[in-house]
Write a protein that binds this DNA or RNA. Structure first.
Lengths: 227, 227
DNA sequence: TAGATTGTTAATCGATTAACAATC
DNA sequence: TAGATTGTTAATCGATTAACAATC
């Protein structure tokens, strides 16, 4: 029998698992994952925080600190088992499950994303592309059919969708966003050049390529000014 | 006549202009720029840090603090002139000059980037795409010719190139990177799934889409776990 | 002049690094 | 057991926020 105090503790435990982890840590987690995959491919099955820190250009202290937010994955005097740590971080990142993704916009970027083979490796299945352009409808891109944006509601009601990727211009994006909310989609990968407003319960990841490019021009221009 | 102490002071001044600005500030700068452009398009010509803070979801204090790293662009009792601030941030971001860009890789992503009209607005001119695939060579993509990667050296020696965009798989990317260094290219926009190693004098901006997607699955899975 | 809002200093908060006891 | 390296606490560093004097 579970009494109320135990329930409280379970609640607190979950809070610790999900919340409280700082953005900075979450930002670094995928990078650890990428490096560990490479190590595994290189046949290395054991690594210390010190070695990994040299490889990645971060401090060993930060690596240990980061990982210990989620659990003690290492062993004193030994270091970390690469395969085990890789798998555990994968679990933390939610990569042990499968996600259905739709892509709004079958332009160049949408098509590029639809063909991205890396997705399937990470459990992301691109199920459909949507566009307004009549000449694209019915075609397939990377094995995925292009549907008319008008059929978005019908499609999502029939097929489970976890992630919607937005790859359309900002004027259209602001009109599509509420439709995604109405359809109860809870994860949005936004490539449009605008910070779309979503309710609290929707998880949004923005990829603002133009901002990335401006950081590059800033750094270049600072280092190599014209006069 | 400039004595050594004056020279020292000039040096210190330049240090302040370029260095010392924290990554966090530089990261936010393009976002201010994007919002100011929108305000300008909306016909708003004056804004206070308080109003802007509500719009962007940051503190007014942070906005004022950030901007004052580069100069006093506002006026007490009035706020900021939108057009003026937009222009000044543009200058800081190095957007008053024109950059020649080449794109390594004419696959889906390379093609999508070549067609990106936003670039031209920001003074980025895509001059050529490079690929290994014989069937692509000689075609044009978004008005830009696709050349063979073997002609990279010849091309760059004849044509000035400020920015090289890398849109090829990581195994090829690690082989192309040293060639870019040898050609004296000082700015790299890297879309390959690996942290390429460049000398200190090369400015690199990484866009790791798979890491972005993992942050999305992490946040989604934390909020909506399977069991 | 009074009101508004910046520029800037000081206080707080959070993240990173250092240190070391625990332990494999 | 001795050596190595983690997990974790404490110290430092940096970034954000608050406060307010300067000034338009």
């Amino acid at each position: 029998m579970i009494d109320s105090e135990t329930l409280y503790l379970i609640g607190a435990q979950n809070m610790n698992d999900n919340k409280n982890i700082s953005r900075a840590v979450i930002k670094r987690l995928p990078r650890y994952y990428t490096y560990l995959k490479q190590l595994q491919e290189d046949g290395i099955n054991r690594i210390s925080s010190e070695e990994l820190s040299r490889l990645m250009g971060v401090t060993a202290s930060q690596i240990r600190q980061d990982l210990n937010h989620f659990g003690g994955f290492g062993q004193q005097g030994y270091g970390y088992n690469v395969a085990y740590l890789y798998e555990e971080i994968g679990k933390i990142l939610g990569l042990e499950r499968v996600y259905s993704m739709i892509i709004i916009g079958a332009g160049n970027l949408g098509q590029a994303l639809a063909r991205y083979s890396h997705f399937r490796q990470r459990g992301i299945e691109v199920k459909a592309l949507f566009d307004v352009k009549e000449e694209l409808i019915g075609k397939t891109e990377g094995g995925v059919e292009i549907l008319h944006i008008d059929s978005l509601e019908d499609y999502v009601k029939e097929n489970p969708v976890e992630i919607a990727t937005i790859a359309i211009p900002k004027t259209q994006a602001v009109r599509v966003a509420p439709r995604l909310v109405a359809l109860d989609i809870k994860a949005v990968w936004n490539f449009s050049h605008v910070d779309l407003k979503f309710p609290e319960d929707v998880v949004v990841e923005n990829v603002h390529l133009s901002e990335s490019l401006m950081r590059l021009t800033y750094n270049y221009n600072s280092k190599y000014p014209l006069n």
